[in-house]
Amino acid sequence: MKKFDSTEILKPTLTLFIICLIVTFLLAFTNVFTKDAILNQELKSQESSQRIVLPGAVSFLESEQDGIKFYTGFDKNNKKIGYVFSNEDKGYGGTINVMTGISVEGQIQGISILSHNETPGLGANITSDKFTEQFKVNAPKNGFSITKGESNKNSEISAITGATISSTAVTNAVNKSIEQFYNLIGKGI
């Protein structure tokens, strides 16, 4: 049995402890310094996508109804102009998150893909303007349907070539938002 040597155990332990302490202290310091900036950035990115889907709105109010979270958008005269919903559906490579902005009259003002994991160059084209612009019409009561060719009705979305699953997922997510919108309107909110 080796004789217990206190310095042999104490010194490494103490050194490691001091290093951990200093690192933690430095991190806490950086955190205080960057905390507000990070929070600001997160808010800004959330608000900027809300502004993309509901142009004209300057402020948003978060509310919840029947377990559905949505945002009400107000213009600069504090007039209610529309709602923003976020919904998701399963795409080819995982969940696709879509934010949809609908005006009080039931006109879709824009959609924005918040997150997706689709194949670059194919499914990832769901973020292209050419695809998302198709949704900017009067929200059809029965939802959009998807077609593989050219769409000839407002309620038809022309799927991206080679990415039908991704296109369908986005359409489904938008349809969920439309359903939530009409439910909400039906309740007279």
Partner: peptide, 10 residues
């Protein structure tokens, strides 16, 4: 949360 990386690797 900002200690996540340090804590996890240790």
């Amino acid at each position: 949360e900002y200690l996540q990386t340090v804590v996890f690797i240790l």
